[in-house]
Design a protein around this nucleic acid. Structure first.
Lengths: 218, 218, 218, 218
DNA sequence: TATGAATGAGCTTTCATTCAT
DNA sequence: TATGAATGAAAGCTCATTCAT
């Protein structure tokens, strides 16, 4: 498992054997196949043979690109967190003109992402569970969490400064809460996929953040 | 696997081969051993041989009580959700004199539970992940979710009626949000166990639910 | 396995633990259950647990009456060969007034038995196959073979003496051939159950034994 | 298991994983090892581990070539029936100048084959017994039976036309009888291997088929 | 760069048998 | 006489990994 001392995972996956264009494509195809199979069957049901078969290559070829199963999983981890980072991707938060609008868009976009990319969230949940026991995964995911938090904290701070949000808002606590809330909603969506409609939450969340009900706008 | 047609799992654990008091104890010992091993290594690393060894019995004895690994997992599921239901258990919601007090105690007690019983929450997270692909687990956990939600909704409704909470509070949305928030905090606690101190969240949550900041007394 | 030095199997099965009426009934029920299961699934699929279950007793009870699986099989062997010996049973050859009539009835009755008691013949085939490697079974079945041969040789000798059969008939060879023929027809009946109608064989066999075609009777 | 809809088994043995010459040899070595072990211990005593060990390969290698034990058994079945089909093999019917000579050679060659290749006949008996419960095996063996019958019927028809055999001979019935007789003699040979000397049968069979005793020349 | 073949170690499950009660 | 509980020893099968080509 290629893993640096600080717990950060080498984002480019295995450094060896990635010199030609074709090789890179093979690696991507394998990572995608692994991603899909984790989404379908979880880590519990992930078999390197199935990954190779889905990518259309021999099992030995998989091990040529990813010396061990762990290396393959690291590549999936990197691919999964990258999808959150890529601006403009369906999972990234949408642009908005003002802080409150950005916050309004936040949960809305998260809920849409959960519905449109259930595979990504399934894989992230699998990774979160594995993070319980894998320091490498934990470190990588922690960074993603922090980025989200900082992102939201930026909105929140701007909203407070612009007078759109409560002046006594604990920005850090609110940012953490919002990330937690969106994660928790995913877990609940697994159990009751039809029951959860996001709009009502947004009303309540705005009430909380602004200190006044939405309808009582000036 | 004893499972009714509506997908609900027989809450009383497997009925198979539990004729004597001794047999019941063995079954419990095996369930506990499986629980511990899931907490330690996840479903991915759960081996029936290890469960038997930890319970101090032969592997064939395990299969005498639990015909298949799945049956054992069902028993663990039942045992895990039961811990939330048993009143007075460290994981059950604490009693409180008034609605606001109960709500104040909610996240506080959840956070404490997460810190004091990390195993239970680890197992629940494993089960949640498995619920992605297992309708039986999904159904059982959905019921637990619903109980929590109804519980909280009761507090919230009482709080609104007593004038302790905002009159325009969307009780259902708030109940769902609180459950989601507590679940999401667990996921974040996995990544950053030391950073999350609950008290700040409680201040914000009360602000949200009451419509006024705690410190700003009239 | 209770087995005498000369290879003969103790016909009464295990001598121990058979003192009361009830005990004998249990033993018979278990033997019958084993017989039925061998007919259904063969020795390859015979499980003592299934035998006990079908007889409605605990597996430990089976071992009380039959200390080992081999002992149970010996009991089934004894029961199977007994059915051929019991006069008047559907598997025993029918009485007839004269030698030729007796011979005429022979294959006819064998064919009927194969159709009416497929289980018995299935078990006998299983036993024949096991006889390849089990001297005890071989010895017991050899005795049954010899009885049939002697039986038929008696008919044949009487037929020759009465002038009904060819005077130069090799009685021993004919007796052996008839037994072989009936066994071989069973094997063929397994493959093509509908194709084999016995009457045409009888015509040919009489031609052979009498030296003249049936239709050319004086 | 490669098996067509009509129940016939793919005669060319398992198609799975036989890409190189070496692979083909391994497959044959495994099939031979399985054949030998079935002859020695029967299906009841057939263990994949033992087959692999006898072929000198790892158990996983066996499963590389034969995904399941059933597939291996299918290969043994195909190999066994092939030995009767290969002209010139010790088990194939011998060539002869005239119909009567061919018939004379038939049982003689069968008896010799039974004595020289007891393993082959043991395996065929095991397969016949399994055919009781396995439609695939039944279908394959039925075809072998039919080939023998047609073979013999050809001889018989030619013999009748050449005036060597009785003109009123029921050719079909006689062909079936001869196959049955040879099968039955094998079963008897299991019980009494020394007693059965074939020549006497042949005298009787010629008497039957020709309508005159061999010694009684016109 | 890619693969067919091979394997050590291990997995869940089975089974005949035993024994205390 | 009968049984619930327990087990040693497999059995069929799987899986990540290796290696010669």
């Amino acid at each position: 498992m290629t893993q640096a001392v600080d717990g950060r995972v080498d984002q480019g996956t295995a450094e060896h054997a990635r010199h030609t264009k074709h090789g890179e494509e093979q690696q991507e195809a394998l990572t995608r196949a692994a991603f899909d199979l984790i989404a379908e069957r979880g880590f519990e049901g992930l078999r390197t043979r199935d990954v190779a078969a889905r990518a259309g290559v021999n099992i030995a070829t998989l091990h040529y690109y990813f010396p061990s199963k762990e290396d393959l999983i690291q590549a999936v981890l990197a691919a999964a967190v990258a999808r959150f980072r890529r601006p403009g991707s369906p999972e990234a938060p949408p642009p908005a003109p003002d802080p409150l609008g950005q916050l309004r868009g936040f949960l809305r976009s998260r809920e849409r992402a959960m519905r449109e990319s259930p595979d990504l969230f399934a894989v992230l949940l699998e990774l979160s569970t594995r993070a319980l026991r894998d320091e490498g995964i934990r470190a990588t995911m922690r960074r993603t969490d922090e980025e989200w938090r900082e992102h939201l904290a930026g909105y929140l701070r701007a909203g407070v400064e612009a007078g759109q949000l409560r002046p006594d808002l604990d920005v850090q606590a609110a940012a953490i809460s919002l990330v937690a809330l969106s994660k928790g909603l995913h877990l609940q969506m697994i159990m009751t996929p039809d029951e959860l409609v996001g709009e009502r939450f947004n009303v309540e969340i705005e009430q909380w953040l602004t200190g006044r009900s939405e309808t009582t706008a000036p």
